[in-house]
Amino acid sequence: MSALTFAYLTEPVLKGVDFTLDKGAIGLLGPNGSGKTTLLRCLLGQVPLSRGQVSVLGWDMATQARAARAGLGWMPERGGVIPGMSGVGLVAYMGELSGMPARDAMQRAHEVLHYVGLADERYRACQDYSQGMKQRLKLAQALVHDPEWLFLDEPTSGLDPRGRVSILELIRDLAWNKGLGVILSTHLLADVEAVCREILVLRAGELLARQAVDTHARQARQVFEVEGFGNEEAFVAGLRDLGAQFEPDGRLLLVTLDLSKLPDARQGAGFDTAAGVNAILRVAAASDFALRRLRRRPVTLAEEFYRMVEA
């Protein structure tokens, strides 16, 4: 995808989005209205682009979207369940529309419904399904033609915690064990952490960041809980010289260190995890500040996300 720009009427929704994805589980994060669903629609070739180029599976989506869609599965957030059909009927129907022979589609519909856990409910009218079953059904119809990429728009929306975990397990299995590419659009950061290896962060239609979910990639930024007594002013000044940021948290002082700014913190492609602790200990010793507590607080994806979005 290069320099993608899309606008509804004159309102720009995506502005110069540019990235290339390898197969795997990708999380698409962003606040409401940031353009996540529109980006997925662009990847499906469902909307005309104002500018830029989208290429999926080697097909140019401006002119060859139909061919590309044979290799794509789409699970919409809202609706997506056609009333009056049984679960197996709907999934087989979608399989046929994806270019499968009728008998193959029916056989495959049974298989994927087994896979998503709807085997016992497959002959029921799908409008009578519970929300969790509908989500599974939508996942099944997206899988029926064995796509190379799955685009999932808020797949855990409206599910209870158990149903959510169950759907996430399926998605994780597909992405990590079955070799499917998955783009998971959601605002639930825990879902992304549970499934994805990489995230794309959108804000106001712009690609804000792209980074691995793996904590090692985030270890350049470390947060410490600090409590002590002594010459606090000198201690804070010493840390400030290292580029630290401070935030009071009750009796504690939260110190955020960027290891990339510390000398000798680099270790191979990453950072020495002890570099931050050592730096604080050195500053405390030099400024006559006795530490009562020094603990590294793990940086969650949520904190990282809010930091990026609110920056």
Partner: peptide, 12 residues
């Protein structure tokens, strides 16, 4: 029922 979204995610 947002069925169009399903139809037009297929090669048609």
């Amino acid at each position: 029922e947002n069925g169009m979204s399903l139809y037009f995610s297929r090669p048609l």
